[in-house]
Design a protein around this nucleic acid. Sequence first.
DNA 1: AAGGGTGTTGCGGGAACCCGCAAAGCGGGT
DNA 2: ACCCGCTTTGCGGGTTCCCGCAACACCCTT
Lengths: 249, 249
Amino acid sequence: MKILLVEDDKMHADFLHEIVENALPECNEILLARDGREGEELARAHKITAIVMDLRMKEQNGIEAARLIWARCPETRILFWSNYSDEAYLRGIANIVPGEATYGYVLKTATEERLRLALRAVLIEAQIVVDREVHQIQNRQMRSRSALTEFEYTILLDIALGLPDKAIATRRKLSLRTVQNRLLSLYDKLDVGALDQNEMGIVLNKRARAVSNAIARKIINREGLSSAEKELQAWLSRRSAKNALPPNP
Amino acid sequence: MKILLVEDDKMHADFLHEIVENALPECNEILLARDGREGEELARAHKITAIVMDLRMKEQNGIEAARLIWARCPETRILFWSNYSDEAYLRGIANIVPGEATYGYVLKTATEERLRLALRAVLIEAQIVVDREVHQIQNRQMRSRSALTEFEYTILLDIALGLPDKAIATRRKLSLRTVQNRLLSLYDKLDVGALDQNEMGIVLNKRARAVSNAIARKIINREGLSSAEKELQAWLSRRSAKNALPPNP
DNA sequence: AAGGGTGTTGCGGGAACCCGCAAAGCGGGT
DNA sequence: ACCCGCTTTGCGGGTTCCCGCAACACCCTT
């Protein structure tokens, strides 16, 4: 059995290597990749189906790498091992897990014992394991009043990228007014209430406020923004390709 | 001689502890803090003047902690030890270094030898040491066309927080039109050229675009936004306090 | 002293944003 | 069948944003 570790911090990689060696005696080969791109290539080249993956890496982040890997090989088992329990990462992972895939999420602050258990459970037994702390955050954010629906979340990314209402409407196939209604509820959930915080004068720009609040609350992050940006660019070029034809006979 | 380590990742903290022990035999007491707040308290309580500080930490980030420490005791020597060489962090540090202060900046990816040298140079010899890699990035960003002036940088934070033009004008004591001109040059530098990227139709919201581009390029980050937000709230309350009096006799 | 560059300010207008009001569509319960 | 609640959509208008045009001040060069 071969295992791939994807981790760009040398110290954590060494530590992980040692733990894996001890916890998984059935593993006879441990590969190491230092960023998402390399990880994805190694996984493909060596047909690896058991991976431990860091999320935040220089070249390509773990979510993007996992998406690509699962796209080719959905039965790959991936244990995410990360410092972060931001909503942005959780949502990012939730969006790419193929449904029948096996994965786990363990925080780097967890004890060695918990990490060992998760390694065996996910990579050997094909269980789903999510760190209790992460799961709590997931739940809390899901039920609190400020939980964003998928719709609100995508619209949030759209405005963060700078799409005007009309463009969002055409992109999401909604009417202009509906988009604005969604924005209304988004503003509500993100506490962008105009006059609430600053008792006197000065009404703030709701769009910008929503985005900065979302960033402050870790609902969105740089990685999520970047991948949303890529999708946007793809959509734009598809769109301009279509629009380039009609005017001609 | 006492040294304070501020680092929230246990593994890195252990490693750092060992290196410091070896590299600085004149040090007879090593304290450890797990976040910025604790670090600041320890530094004050023990009157420590030699600190190694991580930047990204849970409770309070290193920049804020350093600012508070230097505000009370400008001769404190601080070696920043971090994974990141984002412009946002560099600018953050540049903004709080008291000018006569001693500091250093070493990346966690540097060799142990470089770290040892920096430790001695900064904490013992009171030199200024900046990792070459960091320095290069600093330089590149300073001279590239897209280098932001201080003015542009503050206005960028202002719009990210959602301040409307008029509010920025009063806050920064400028006319409305001047603020808009600054925005123009900001848009230019951040390549928010409206029709350039998307050949057909769809003009994007420049404000939002500027912010998301700046985030993508790591010119601003969550920490910077949060501290800007605090300043904004302070300004707002100062302002409403003033405005609360005049109308009365 | 004249000219060119840069930064600041005013004015005006087209587009986008924010939102209250109101009319439909669509489910689910009695 | 009826009503109630929720979402979607249109309309209108007050506000903000974006920016071209133009005037003025300041500094630096020649």
